[in-house]
Amino acid sequence: MRDKWEIVIGLETHAQLNTRSKMFSGASTAFGAAPNTQACAVDIALPGVLPVANREAVAKAVRFGLAVNGSNAVNINRRSARSSPAKTISIPTFPRAIRSASTRRPS
């Protein structure tokens, strides 16, 4: 049976970077703290707060790019965690409801 079929697999891996602080705020990333003690104003998306990109995270991502011999360029895109215009799917664990992703395109 198996010989008739070919299995095709792609993997998406999410790796938490071991930076001292978060991607867009200065809050600590240390594991094991009491709930909600390491979420600052930016992380909980209070009105008026702004994200600031973490250079250490970018540097680590660049290291990865160098290690696997990819091309390196950084562009920061904001992605909304919503689906189609007619429906709103918000996720409570996603305070800003937008996920800023940096997609690095060839420079």
Partner: peptide
């Protein structure tokens, strides 16, 4: 605005 106002969902404040 659609992106900036996405955070107002009644959960945290």
């Amino acid at each position: 605005a659609s992106s900036n106002l996405a955070r107002y969902d009644g959960v945290r404040y």
